[in-house]
Design a binder for these strands. Structure first.
Length: 360
DNA sequence: AAGTCGTGGGA
DNA sequence: TTCCCAAGACT
Protein backbone atom coordinates (compact mmCIF):
# COMPACT_ATOMS: atom_id res chain seq x y z
CA UNK A 1 0.00 0.00 0.00
CA UNK A 2 1.25 3.44 -0.89
CA UNK A 3 1.67 5.73 2.08
CA UNK A 4 -0.52 8.81 1.54
CA UNK A 5 0.98 12.24 1.48
CA UNK A 6 -0.50 14.60 4.03
CA UNK A 7 -3.95 15.20 2.63
CA UNK A 8 -4.65 18.55 4.29
CA UNK A 9 -1.44 20.02 2.93
CA UNK A 10 -2.23 18.65 -0.50
CA UNK A 11 -5.73 20.14 -0.73
CA UNK A 12 -4.73 23.41 0.86
CA UNK A 13 -1.85 24.06 -1.51
CA UNK A 14 -3.77 22.90 -4.53
CA UNK A 15 -6.89 24.97 -3.82
CA UNK A 16 -4.80 28.02 -3.13
CA UNK A 17 -3.05 27.59 -6.48
CA UNK A 18 -6.38 26.99 -8.21
CA UNK A 19 -7.86 30.17 -6.78
CA UNK A 20 -5.09 32.19 -8.40
CA UNK A 21 -4.73 30.25 -11.66
CA UNK A 22 -8.16 28.98 -12.67
CA UNK A 23 -8.96 29.69 -16.30
CA UNK A 24 -12.16 31.46 -17.24
CA UNK A 25 -14.66 29.04 -18.79
CA UNK A 26 -18.32 29.74 -19.59
CA UNK A 27 -19.53 26.80 -17.49
CA UNK A 28 -17.62 28.16 -14.51
CA UNK A 29 -19.92 31.17 -14.48
CA UNK A 30 -22.93 29.08 -13.49
CA UNK A 31 -23.98 26.42 -11.03
CA UNK A 32 -26.83 25.20 -13.21
CA UNK A 33 -26.46 21.39 -13.13
CA UNK A 34 -27.70 21.10 -16.73
CA UNK A 35 -25.03 23.43 -18.04
CA UNK A 36 -22.29 21.81 -15.96
CA UNK A 37 -23.44 18.40 -17.16
CA UNK A 38 -23.35 19.52 -20.80
CA UNK A 39 -19.84 20.88 -20.34
CA UNK A 40 -18.62 17.62 -18.82
CA UNK A 41 -20.06 15.60 -21.70
CA UNK A 42 -18.47 17.87 -24.29
CA UNK A 43 -15.15 17.80 -22.41
CA UNK A 44 -14.89 14.01 -22.63
CA UNK A 45 -11.67 13.33 -24.56
CA UNK A 46 -11.82 16.90 -25.85
CA UNK A 47 -9.75 19.93 -24.91
CA UNK A 48 -11.23 23.01 -23.25
CA UNK A 49 -10.38 25.39 -26.10
CA UNK A 50 -12.17 23.13 -28.57
CA UNK A 51 -15.29 22.83 -26.43
CA UNK A 52 -15.90 26.50 -25.58
CA UNK A 53 -17.48 27.63 -28.90
CA UNK A 54 -19.55 24.44 -29.15
CA UNK A 55 -20.78 24.88 -25.59
CA UNK A 56 -21.77 28.51 -26.16
CA UNK A 57 -23.72 27.78 -29.35
CA UNK A 58 -25.44 24.82 -27.70
CA UNK A 59 -26.53 26.74 -24.60
CA UNK A 60 -27.80 29.57 -26.77
CA UNK A 61 -30.14 27.23 -28.67
CA UNK A 62 -30.94 24.79 -25.85
CA UNK A 63 -30.59 26.71 -22.57
CA UNK A 64 -32.47 24.16 -20.47
CA UNK A 65 -33.53 20.50 -20.39
CA UNK A 66 -37.04 21.24 -21.69
CA UNK A 67 -35.89 22.95 -24.88
CA UNK A 68 -33.46 20.14 -25.64
CA UNK A 69 -35.93 17.38 -24.90
CA UNK A 70 -38.36 18.78 -27.47
CA UNK A 71 -35.79 19.31 -30.24
CA UNK A 72 -35.41 17.11 -33.33
CA UNK A 73 -32.34 14.89 -33.07
CA UNK A 74 -30.88 16.25 -36.31
CA UNK A 75 -30.98 19.84 -35.03
CA UNK A 76 -28.95 18.85 -31.99
CA UNK A 77 -26.51 16.81 -34.07
CA UNK A 78 -25.91 19.81 -36.30
CA UNK A 79 -24.68 21.74 -33.23
CA UNK A 80 -22.37 18.81 -32.43
CA UNK A 81 -20.98 18.65 -35.99
CA UNK A 82 -17.17 18.58 -35.88
CA UNK A 83 -16.91 17.86 -32.15
CA UNK A 84 -16.61 14.10 -32.66
CA UNK A 85 -17.69 11.10 -30.58
CA UNK A 86 -21.25 11.63 -31.74
CA UNK A 87 -22.61 8.95 -29.45
CA UNK A 88 -22.12 11.48 -26.64
CA UNK A 89 -24.68 13.68 -28.34
CA UNK A 90 -27.25 10.92 -28.80
CA UNK A 91 -26.80 9.80 -25.21
CA UNK A 92 -27.12 13.32 -23.84
CA UNK A 93 -30.37 13.87 -25.72
CA UNK A 94 -31.76 10.57 -24.45
CA UNK A 95 -30.63 11.27 -20.90
CA UNK A 96 -32.12 14.77 -20.82
CA UNK A 97 -35.38 13.40 -22.19
CA UNK A 98 -35.36 10.87 -19.35
CA UNK A 99 -34.75 13.66 -16.85
CA UNK A 100 -37.72 15.60 -18.22
CA UNK A 101 -39.97 12.54 -18.26
CA UNK A 102 -39.02 11.09 -14.89
CA UNK A 103 -37.71 13.96 -12.75
CA UNK A 104 -39.64 17.01 -13.94
CA UNK A 105 -36.63 18.36 -15.83
CA UNK A 106 -34.50 18.68 -12.70
CA UNK A 107 -31.08 17.00 -12.81
CA UNK A 108 -31.11 14.34 -10.07
CA UNK A 109 -29.24 15.37 -6.90
CA UNK A 110 -28.34 11.74 -6.24
CA UNK A 111 -25.21 10.07 -7.65
CA UNK A 112 -26.79 6.63 -7.89
CA UNK A 113 -29.75 7.92 -9.89
CA UNK A 114 -27.70 10.26 -12.07
CA UNK A 115 -25.18 7.47 -12.81
CA UNK A 116 -27.88 5.36 -14.50
CA UNK A 117 -28.57 7.91 -17.23
CA UNK A 118 -27.27 7.10 -20.73
CA UNK A 119 -23.74 8.31 -21.39
CA UNK A 120 -23.10 9.01 -17.70
CA UNK A 121 -20.20 7.00 -16.27
CA UNK A 122 -18.11 7.23 -13.12
CA UNK A 123 -16.23 10.33 -14.23
CA UNK A 124 -19.27 12.36 -15.28
CA UNK A 125 -21.14 11.36 -12.13
CA UNK A 126 -18.33 12.50 -9.84
CA UNK A 127 -17.74 15.70 -11.83
CA UNK A 128 -21.35 16.88 -12.06
CA UNK A 129 -22.38 15.74 -8.59
CA UNK A 130 -19.37 17.40 -6.92
CA UNK A 131 -19.37 20.65 -8.91
CA UNK A 132 -23.12 21.24 -9.06
CA UNK A 133 -24.30 19.71 -5.79
CA UNK A 134 -21.23 19.38 -3.54
CA UNK A 135 -21.15 15.58 -3.28
CA UNK A 136 -17.78 14.37 -2.09
CA UNK A 137 -16.86 12.17 -5.06
CA UNK A 138 -13.37 12.11 -6.63
CA UNK A 139 -12.99 12.25 -10.42
CA UNK A 140 -10.52 10.07 -12.31
CA UNK A 141 -9.62 11.37 -15.75
CA UNK A 142 -6.44 11.62 -17.78
CA UNK A 143 -5.24 14.63 -15.78
CA UNK A 144 -5.88 12.99 -12.43
CA UNK A 145 -4.11 9.81 -13.52
CA UNK A 146 -1.06 11.83 -14.53
CA UNK A 147 -0.95 13.96 -11.37
CA UNK A 148 -1.56 11.12 -8.93
CA UNK A 149 0.83 8.60 -10.53
CA UNK A 150 3.57 11.23 -10.41
CA UNK A 151 2.88 12.40 -6.85
CA UNK A 152 2.86 8.80 -5.56
CA UNK A 153 5.27 7.31 -8.14
CA UNK A 154 2.74 4.70 -9.20
CA UNK A 155 4.38 2.67 -11.97
CA UNK A 156 1.47 0.31 -12.67
CA UNK A 157 -0.21 0.06 -16.06
CA UNK A 158 -2.75 2.90 -15.98
CA UNK A 159 -4.96 1.23 -18.60
CA UNK A 160 -5.88 -1.43 -16.01
CA UNK A 161 -9.04 -1.12 -13.93
CA UNK A 162 -7.15 -2.08 -10.78
CA UNK A 163 -4.74 0.83 -11.20
CA UNK A 164 -7.56 3.30 -11.79
CA UNK A 165 -9.31 2.06 -8.65
CA UNK A 166 -6.11 2.66 -6.71
CA UNK A 167 -5.93 6.20 -8.10
CA UNK A 168 -9.57 6.78 -7.20
CA UNK A 169 -8.86 5.65 -3.65
CA UNK A 170 -5.89 8.00 -3.39
CA UNK A 171 -8.11 10.84 -4.60
CA UNK A 172 -10.80 9.86 -2.09
CA UNK A 173 -8.24 10.20 0.70
CA UNK A 174 -7.28 13.68 -0.49
CA UNK A 175 -10.59 15.32 -1.46
CA UNK A 176 -11.86 17.80 1.14
CA UNK A 177 -15.52 17.50 2.11
CA UNK A 178 -16.07 21.27 2.12
CA UNK A 179 -15.02 21.93 -1.51
CA UNK A 180 -15.04 18.71 -3.53
CA UNK A 181 -15.98 20.39 -6.81
CA UNK A 182 -13.17 22.90 -6.67
CA UNK A 183 -10.73 20.19 -5.63
CA UNK A 184 -11.66 17.98 -8.58
CA UNK A 185 -11.37 20.88 -10.99
CA UNK A 186 -8.10 21.97 -9.40
CA UNK A 187 -6.42 18.60 -9.94
CA UNK A 188 -7.55 18.59 -13.57
CA UNK A 189 -6.48 22.20 -14.06
CA UNK A 190 -3.07 21.38 -12.62
CA UNK A 191 -2.79 18.46 -15.01
CA UNK A 192 -3.75 20.64 -17.96
CA UNK A 193 -1.54 23.63 -17.16
CA UNK A 194 1.41 22.45 -15.05
CA UNK A 195 1.61 18.67 -14.71
CA UNK A 196 1.47 18.22 -18.49
CA UNK A 197 2.24 15.03 -20.44
CA UNK A 198 5.46 16.41 -21.91
CA UNK A 199 7.81 18.90 -20.28
CA UNK A 200 5.81 19.47 -17.09
CA UNK A 201 6.46 22.79 -15.34
CA UNK A 202 7.60 21.25 -12.07
CA UNK A 203 9.34 24.45 -11.02
CA UNK A 204 5.97 26.20 -10.89
CA UNK A 205 4.05 23.31 -9.34
CA UNK A 206 2.45 24.04 -5.95
CA UNK A 207 2.85 20.38 -5.04
CA UNK A 208 6.48 19.82 -6.09
CA UNK A 209 7.66 19.63 -2.47
CA UNK A 210 5.52 16.56 -1.88
CA UNK A 211 5.78 15.01 -5.36
CA UNK A 212 7.75 11.75 -5.18
CA UNK A 213 8.50 11.56 -8.88
CA UNK A 214 9.87 15.11 -8.81
CA UNK A 215 12.02 14.23 -5.81
CA UNK A 216 13.34 11.12 -7.58
CA UNK A 217 13.75 13.03 -10.88
CA UNK A 218 11.94 10.39 -12.89
CA UNK A 219 8.76 12.22 -13.85
CA UNK A 220 8.93 10.86 -17.41
CA UNK A 221 8.25 7.33 -16.12
CA UNK A 222 4.71 8.28 -15.06
CA UNK A 223 2.03 7.55 -16.00
CA UNK A 224 2.97 4.20 -17.51
CA UNK A 225 0.94 2.57 -20.27
CA UNK A 226 1.91 0.00 -22.91
CA UNK A 227 2.65 1.14 -26.46
CA UNK A 228 -0.35 1.31 -28.75
CA UNK A 229 -0.58 -0.75 -31.91
CA UNK A 230 -0.44 0.90 -35.27
CA UNK A 231 -3.83 1.45 -36.83
CA UNK A 232 -4.75 0.07 -40.26
CA UNK A 233 -5.46 2.16 -43.33
CA UNK A 234 -8.24 1.53 -45.86
CA UNK A 235 -9.09 2.95 -49.28
CA UNK A 236 -12.55 4.55 -49.33
CA UNK A 237 -14.62 5.33 -52.41
CA UNK A 238 -17.40 7.92 -52.32
CA UNK A 239 -19.83 8.95 -55.05
CA UNK A 240 -20.72 12.50 -56.07
CA UNK A 241 -23.84 11.69 -58.04
CA UNK A 242 -25.05 14.85 -59.79
CA UNK A 243 -28.54 15.16 -61.25
CA UNK A 244 -30.21 18.45 -62.21
CA UNK A 245 -27.79 20.48 -60.10
CA UNK A 246 -28.31 18.32 -57.05
CA UNK A 247 -26.30 15.49 -55.53
CA UNK A 248 -27.20 12.57 -53.32
CA UNK A 249 -26.41 12.24 -49.62
CA UNK A 250 -27.47 9.47 -47.28
CA UNK A 251 -27.93 9.22 -43.54
CA UNK A 252 -25.68 6.91 -41.59
CA UNK A 253 -27.21 4.30 -39.26
CA UNK A 254 -28.19 5.47 -35.77
CA UNK A 255 -25.55 3.27 -34.15
CA UNK A 256 -21.84 2.79 -34.70
CA UNK A 257 -19.35 4.97 -36.48
CA UNK A 258 -20.48 8.60 -37.11
CA UNK A 259 -23.97 7.62 -36.04
CA UNK A 260 -26.77 9.69 -37.51
CA UNK A 261 -24.61 11.96 -39.64
CA UNK A 262 -25.17 12.55 -43.37
CA UNK A 263 -22.52 11.69 -45.96
CA UNK A 264 -21.75 11.01 -49.58
CA UNK A 265 -22.65 7.40 -50.45
CA UNK A 266 -19.84 4.83 -50.67
CA UNK A 267 -17.57 3.16 -48.15
CA UNK A 268 -14.44 1.24 -47.23
CA UNK A 269 -12.79 -1.18 -49.64
CA UNK A 270 -12.80 -4.80 -48.49
CA UNK A 271 -10.06 -7.29 -49.31
CA UNK A 272 -8.29 -6.38 -52.52
CA UNK A 273 -11.16 -4.18 -53.64
CA UNK A 274 -10.34 -0.79 -55.16
CA UNK A 275 -11.93 2.41 -53.88
CA UNK A 276 -13.98 2.65 -57.08
CA UNK A 277 -15.26 -0.91 -56.82
CA UNK A 278 -16.17 -0.37 -53.16
CA UNK A 279 -18.07 2.78 -54.11
CA UNK A 280 -20.01 0.95 -56.86
CA UNK A 281 -20.80 -1.96 -54.53
CA UNK A 282 -22.02 0.34 -51.72
CA UNK A 283 -24.25 2.30 -54.08
CA UNK A 284 -25.78 -0.96 -55.22
CA UNK A 285 -26.13 -2.47 -51.72
CA UNK A 286 -27.30 0.55 -49.78
CA UNK A 287 -29.20 2.55 -52.39
CA UNK A 288 -30.06 0.04 -55.08
CA UNK A 289 -28.44 2.45 -57.46
CA UNK A 290 -26.20 1.73 -60.46
CA UNK A 291 -23.91 4.66 -61.27
CA UNK A 292 -21.37 5.41 -64.00
CA UNK A 293 -18.08 7.10 -63.18
CA UNK A 294 -17.20 10.29 -65.09
CA UNK A 295 -14.05 11.25 -63.24
CA UNK A 296 -12.33 12.03 -59.96
CA UNK A 297 -13.80 14.94 -57.99
CA UNK A 298 -11.56 15.05 -54.91
CA UNK A 299 -9.25 13.10 -52.64
CA UNK A 300 -8.39 13.37 -48.96
CA UNK A 301 -6.87 11.48 -46.07
CA UNK A 302 -8.32 11.29 -42.58
CA UNK A 303 -7.43 9.68 -39.27
CA UNK A 304 -9.99 8.21 -36.88
CA UNK A 305 -9.35 6.71 -33.46
CA UNK A 306 -8.58 3.18 -34.61
CA UNK A 307 -8.13 3.33 -38.39
CA UNK A 308 -7.28 5.78 -41.12
CA UNK A 309 -8.65 6.18 -44.62
CA UNK A 310 -7.69 7.56 -47.99
CA UNK A 311 -10.85 8.84 -49.67
CA UNK A 312 -11.46 9.15 -53.40
CA UNK A 313 -14.61 10.92 -54.55
CA UNK A 314 -15.83 9.87 -58.00
CA UNK A 315 -18.05 12.10 -60.11
CA UNK A 316 -20.93 9.92 -61.23
CA UNK A 317 -24.16 9.90 -63.18
CA UNK A 318 -27.16 7.72 -62.54
CA UNK A 319 -26.83 4.63 -64.75
CA UNK A 320 -30.12 2.98 -63.94
CA UNK A 321 -33.28 3.60 -61.97
CA UNK A 322 -33.30 2.74 -58.31
CA UNK A 323 -34.23 -0.86 -57.73
CA UNK A 324 -37.25 -1.48 -55.59
CA UNK A 325 -37.56 -3.21 -52.25
CA UNK A 326 -33.96 -2.78 -51.20
CA UNK A 327 -33.61 -1.71 -47.61
CA UNK A 328 -31.49 1.36 -47.29
CA UNK A 329 -30.80 4.31 -45.07
CA UNK A 330 -32.67 7.57 -45.75
CA UNK A 331 -31.23 9.67 -48.58
CA UNK A 332 -31.72 13.16 -50.01
CA UNK A 333 -30.93 15.06 -53.20
CA UNK A 334 -29.49 18.43 -52.15
CA UNK A 335 -27.80 21.44 -53.71
CA UNK A 336 -24.39 22.65 -52.54
CA UNK A 337 -26.09 25.55 -50.75
CA UNK A 338 -28.02 23.02 -48.63
CA UNK A 339 -24.83 21.63 -47.11
CA UNK A 340 -25.03 23.80 -43.96
CA UNK A 341 -28.45 22.34 -43.14
CA UNK A 342 -27.12 18.85 -42.51
CA UNK A 343 -24.53 17.46 -40.09
CA UNK A 344 -21.58 15.90 -41.93
CA UNK A 345 -18.40 14.15 -40.76
CA UNK A 346 -15.31 16.34 -40.90
CA UNK A 347 -13.84 14.51 -43.88
CA UNK A 348 -16.96 15.18 -45.95
CA UNK A 349 -16.76 18.88 -45.14
CA UNK A 350 -13.11 18.83 -46.15
CA UNK A 351 -14.08 17.26 -49.49
CA UNK A 352 -16.95 19.70 -50.05
CA UNK A 353 -14.48 22.52 -49.61
CA UNK A 354 -12.51 21.17 -52.56
CA UNK A 355 -15.53 20.33 -54.71
CA UNK A 356 -17.69 23.41 -54.02
CA UNK A 357 -15.19 26.12 -53.03
CA UNK A 358 -17.69 28.88 -53.81
CA UNK A 359 -20.29 27.83 -51.24
CA UNK A 360 -18.00 26.61 -48.46
C1' DA B 1 -10.77 -6.87 -20.84
C1' DA B 2 -10.00 -5.01 -24.87
C1' DG B 3 -12.08 -2.71 -28.85
C1' DT B 4 -15.06 0.96 -30.54
C1' DC B 5 -15.97 5.70 -31.00
C1' DG B 6 -13.73 11.88 -33.86
C1' DT B 7 -11.22 15.57 -34.24
C1' DG B 8 -7.62 18.91 -33.65
C1' DG B 9 -3.31 20.40 -31.73
C1' DG B 10 1.42 20.07 -30.28
C1' DA B 11 6.09 18.28 -30.33
C1' DT C 1 5.71 12.66 -40.85
C1' DT C 2 4.34 10.38 -37.04
C1' DC C 3 2.97 9.91 -32.67
C1' DC C 4 0.59 11.10 -28.52
C1' DC C 5 -3.09 12.86 -26.17
C1' DA C 6 -7.39 15.29 -24.69
C1' DA C 7 -12.46 16.82 -17.94
C1' DG C 8 -14.66 8.77 -21.04
C1' DA C 9 -18.66 5.56 -21.91
C1' DC C 10 -20.23 1.43 -23.64
C1' DT C 11 -20.00 -3.40 -25.03
Amino acid sequence: MVVPVHSDAFAEKLLSWFGANRRAMPWRETKDPYMIWLSEVMLQQTQVDTVIPYYQRFIEVFPDPESLSKAPEDDVLKLWEGLGYYRRCHHFIAAVRDVCADYGGRIPDDPHIFRRLPGVGDYTTAAVMSIAYGHVLPVVDGNVIRVITRIYRIADDTTKTKTRMLIRDMMAALIPSDSPGDFNQAVMELGALVCTPKKPLCGECPLNDLCRAFQHRDISLYPFSPKKMKIPQYPVGLALIMKDGRFLIQKRPSKGHLAGLWELPGGKAEGDESAETAMLRKCREELGLTVEVCGMAAQASHVYSHFKIHVSVFSCTVGAQREKDLKHQPFMWITPSDIPSYAFPAVNLKLFQTIFPSVM
